[in-house]
Design a protein around this nucleic acid. Structure first.
Lengths: 203, 203, 203, 203
DNA sequence: TATGAATGAGCTTTCATTCAT
DNA sequence: CATGAATGAAAGCTCATTCAT
């Protein structure tokens, strides 16, 4: 029945992010979120069926937009290496531009219960698909090593971005996350090894 | 801060892992863990100050042992590439050999509250130091690209291992995680790019 | 205390009966009744001060009409035995003719809170008076045993009708309640005992 | 898991009756019952799974005992008329001896929700069976009119007892309910009609 | 040492009612 | 006359922790 949209819908989502970022996931009561949003507690239930739905929506709305934008922007690029670089850029940019959202995403929402996590997983899957598409293209065009297992490559890409973002959040955002775009790109493309590793003598 | 050690101490930790793996973090009540361990609920408080201490100890004990063993074994190796390969192997092996522990580590304990997470972080830091040591050695000996930022490399290594392990757990352990040791090694060393990327024309 | 009358007034009462019969007393929200009546929730408060007033009115309007009709019809009858028979008939007929109302009356509205119940009691009292009048007449004319306590007789009459009606509703209305008019009459008049009990040797 | 017995179990049931009788069903919060019982609110949940279970247990324990006693005592009697008389007596006695319980039984618990009511119904059914047994015996031995529908007779008996008891409670217990045993017996046996109605000319 | 019965703080959610439009 | 979005009070239940035995 509920699930209405409108200005308040956005206010509540923003309030949820602010409260979670400030007090942590476990102290983010509905009443506190309502107060932050400037509405009564009951009003939240005109927009979200349950608290869990609100928290999942935090992800869906924000991350969903980011993913959609990524998807569109990626289509405008041809070179899979450019696509990869853009992927890194947009991942870091989304978090660097909104530290509260970054905290919620990288730290707080990972503490949530199974229902919320599975809501988040659904969105993550579509993100993984985007990464997979880029990897596959790169392998087909010969820019990426075709012998590599795509799933493993995806895990490396996402794992690296995610871990780097988490480390940045935990550092308190002391440095500019966007400064890591190019280094990350080079690292992902070239690996740790020195020089002509490919075709060389691996140990 | 354990109040006491002894046989029951280990029983309780094992029981905690079993219960969390079976019922999930949010349903792992102290009473259930006590029952699994064959003691009364109150007894747990003779060994652990708080439930949180028990959960942190799950990590400290198990992961601590793994880290200690890694550290010792790594000292026996000279080549940083061999060290890296061993790092991957021991990370995967610890999880592949104990699926319950893997579930608890990769999924359930991430839902925990700030206190537990910070307890876990402390242990993770010593793990990160080990990774850093290997990376630094590799750069000093010229086996790893010296221009790479160590922290970023560490994030890639840990992020890749962690994400790969999580994906494996979420798959239900359908394949052998250890089969990913060599591919992971090659991927980390060589990156995604094809052929003589290093010194070539990055895009 | 209705604030206003009119077509919508009746619509709302009918809607209340329908919703209570369909969803039960505890799920009969004002909003649901409003929807059923085809008005906005707030509109109900133009016709009734409180939800409780609406529910009491369900009784007052419907049962009041029944009682009024009973009263008038009874005046046309002379023989107190005929009056008693008609009382039984009209009680059963009112419920048999409107199963939704029967459910609301016999089952759902008994779950209501004190205010509603006392509103209902007020109406019941006038019904009890009608019964009392019939009993008194019967005793005065010598058709009914004069030594019987009138209040007790009334309790038997109403208790029997009410319990029989409730049993019928709970049976799902599987049989025709009106088929019970004559048996009920004979039972109330003659009692359970066999043969010439009156003046005989009671045990 | 819960559902323990013991001294506190009885205390809580007694407290529930007292609180419901004093404040009414709708104001009988768990916390209030706990206070009355001299235990913490949480303790109630060691003895009852849910509040509803407690309320049903109020009935089961008290009314169940009454029914059991009735059953046993009835077996010691031979004459169905004596059995009927005893039925009336024990019904009235159970309520007259415990006014708080009478209020809860006759008034407050009728306001409860479907779950509780169905719990109560289950117990009532066994009471109805006892009545049915007595009626059937009376008809078989020729003491009760055999042509009467048993279900209808049961409805009259229970309806009369119940309504009489309710009227007594609503009167505030101003008179002695047990004084109604004999009048009720005579009324049920002989009916309202005067003299040799049976076989006479019913109108 | 060990027990486990008892504690009690803490929070989501519903829904009758209001009132600005 | 009518609307329906917004309000906010109110209470059942869980479970980590304690402590008398």
């Amino acid at each position: 029945m509920p699930v209405r949209r409108g200005e308040k819908y956005d206010n509540i989502i923003d309030a949820a992010i602010a409260v979670i970022a400030r007090h942590g996931y476990h102290r983010a009561q509905v009443s506190k979120i309502a107060e932050e949003a400037g509405v009564a507690a009951g009003t939240i239930y005109l927009y979200f069926e349950k608290k869990q739905d609100l928290l999942v929506s935090v992800f869906q709305e924000r991350f969903g937009q980011i993913i959609e934008k990524s998807k569109r922007d990626l289509e405008a690029l041809d070179d899979p290496r450019q696509k990869l670089r853009y992927l890194i850029y947009s991942h870091y940019a989304a978090l660097a531009g909104d530290p509260e959202f970054a905290t919620v995403t990288q730290i707080e929402l990972r503490q949530s219960d199974p229902v919320i996590r599975s809501g988040i997983s659904a969105i993550m899957r579509s993100y993984f698909e985007i990464i997979d598409t880029v990897v596959t293209l790169g392998q087909n065009t010969g820019h990426f090593e075709p012998s590599l297992d795509r799933r493993l490559v995806r895990n490396m890409i996402f794992g690296t971005l995610d871990q780097t973002a988490t480390a940045w959040v935990l550092s308190g955002g002391k440095y500019n996350l966007l400064s890591q775009v190019e280094p990350t790109y080079r690292l992902l493309i070239g690996g740790i090894g020195r020089g002509a590793t490919k075709g060389g003598e691996p140990v």
